[in-house]
């Protein structure tokens, strides 16, 4: 038997081979993703920014901490949730932090935007609530455990 001509005539890659190689390449790609972008620590709370600067941080274990600045900030507790009012003059946003659900949402505001921030859904480990007229944003506070601070 002379199989050489058959081998020479045969294609380098059969359809099943191609599927197999594609699966291996996909697996390599997934592994590369986990290696190059390892998962970091999840959200530990939320930060509230006014005009891009942090004015308040809320941590699930530790509560809220305000930074002195242009906004007037007041806190009240209701049903295990922390309600924080950010105001400047007549303008205000009322943000609710839920430590059990690990979410934040704007309960009330008197901003003029059509997409009123008070109607935006609550955010958890990702997402941002923006109140453009009031230059206020609420976003998750993530922590990279490989980068501790003193």
């Amino acid at each position: 038997m002379n199989r050489l001509p058959d081998v020479k005539r045969g294609k380098a890659f059969r359809p099943l081979d191609l599927i197999f190689y594609a699966l291996i390449l996909a697996l390599i790609a997934v592994l590369l993703l986990f290696t190059l972008w390892p998962s970091k620590g999840g959200a530990v709370g939320f930060s509230v920014k006014y005009e891009g600067k942090t004015v308040y941080t809320y941590r699930f274990e530790g509560g809220g901490e305000a930074v002195e600045g242009e906004l007037t900030i007041s806190e009240t507790e209701r049903d295990g949730r922390l309600l924080v009012r950010f105001s400047k003059g007549e303008e205000y946003n009322l943000v609710e932090f839920d430590p059990e659900g690990r979410t934040a949402r704007v309960l009330d505001a008197n901003c003029s935007a059509r997409a009123d921030c008070a109607h935006m859904p609550a955010i958890g480990e990702s997402g941002t609530i923006l109140c453009v007229p009031h230059a206020l944003s609420v976003e998750p506070l993530t922590e990279d455990l490989f980068r501790p601070s003193l």
Binding site: F13, I24, L31, T35, S39
Partner: peptide, 26 residues
């Protein structure tokens, strides 16, 4: 040819599996 390709892929795959990275928890 196919065996060579498979062998190369496996050789490349194994180290990646090994350096998956350890996570930290707090």
């Amino acid at each position: 040819m196919r065996r060579v390709v498979c062998a190369l892929l496996v050789l490349f795959l194994l180290p990646l599996a090994a350096c998956g990275g350890k996570e930290l928890i707090a």
